[in-house]
């Protein structure tokens, strides 16, 4: 139940004041701090163990200019995006179904949670046997990482929908399809976007791990090759690239998430 005081102008004004620190400044300060810390680490540990920020950026520029790079980047992008789409679409469908059927959801939840917490690398030999050595194995490995949080978040979102929305749907004589499409899904969207955010990060992680084993292509493969030859410069450069990409995507989804939640702020 929403309390009447939520719309009190005083309360709203106080909230706005608390949020008044410009987020852009916060972000800049944080990035500056991290880079400084990194530089200190380099001085303490030596350039061999931890290449400096400047060296890493120039190394990355070198890697990206290499003629082999687009092929590897494309491979990773293709695999992780495919895995992401499968995770989101299938995860959403399974989550909606499990959320709508209480018993099925209750049976599935502990199994999904257990599956979520085991190191999935133990399943990789099975994946390889099923899908072979090509890109499909990496996509499948990305999917098993990413799909579970999408399912869990969607399922809980559907389960936690206010009962009064569903009663309203019946009072307005909506069909089952109308109720699903115009009430259940929009009511669950903020939670579902949170699930997508976690799912995105894990899908990328899964795809990269997949590329690190039994693979000849992709950023994961470049990483493992650099690790084997002790090329810390390349490892750091690739790690930087992945961090920047993943952070950017995650920040975009987070902004969407916040915007959606603002409408539901007082509930």
């Amino acid at each position: 139940m929403r309390a009447a005081q939520d719309a009190d102008p005083l309360v709203t004004a106080e909230r706005a004041e608390r949020r008044a620190v410009p987020p852009a400044l916060d972000t800049m300060l944080m990035i500056g701090g991290l880079v400084a810390l990194w530089q200190v680490g380099t001085i303490l540990l030596g350039h061999e163990a931890l290449p400096s920020p400047v060296a890493t950026v120039s190394k990355l520029a070198g890697i990206m200019a290499d003629e082999d790079f687009p092929r590897h980047a494309w491979e990773t992008a293709r695999a992780s995006l495919t895995a992401l789409v499968i995770s989101l679409v299938a995860g959403l469908a399974i989550g909606l179904a499990l959320g709508a059927h209480r018993l099925a959801g209750e049976v599935a939840e502990p199994m999904l949670t257990a599956l979520y917490s085991i190191p999935k690398i133990t399943l990789y030999p099975i994946i390889l046997l099923l899908f072979g050595l090509g890109i499909s194995a990496k996509i499948a490995f990305g999917v098993i990482h990413g799909i579970i949080p999408v399912i869990l978040f969607t399922m809980n979102a559907v389960r936690n929908i206010c009962a009064v929305y569903l009663r309203s749907a019946r009072a307005m004589r909506l069909t089952a399809a109308q109720t699903a499409g115009t009430i259940i899904v929009p009511a669950a969207v903020p939670e579902i976007v949170s699930g997508f955010r976690v799912g995105f990060a894990l899908t990328l992680l899964g795809t990269l791990i997949g590329e690190m084993f039994a693979s000849q292509r992709g950023i994961g493969y470049m990483l493992v090759k650099a690790m084997e030859t002790g090329d810390t410069g390349t490892v750091m450069a690739l790690a930087l690239l992945l961090v920047v990409l993943a952070t950017a995507a995650s920040a975009a989804l987070l902004a969407l998430d916040r915007r959606l939640r603002r409408h539901a702020l007082a509930s």
């Binding site: 139940m1 929305y165 009663r167 009072a171 004589r173 009511a187 969207v189 539901a264």
Partner: peptide
Amino acid sequence: GEVPDGIGVVFQEDASFPWL
């Protein structure tokens, strides 16, 4: 067991849809 045409219901809980 079905809401007939011509009957409107208002509930105690806030049933406004926050996304609209």
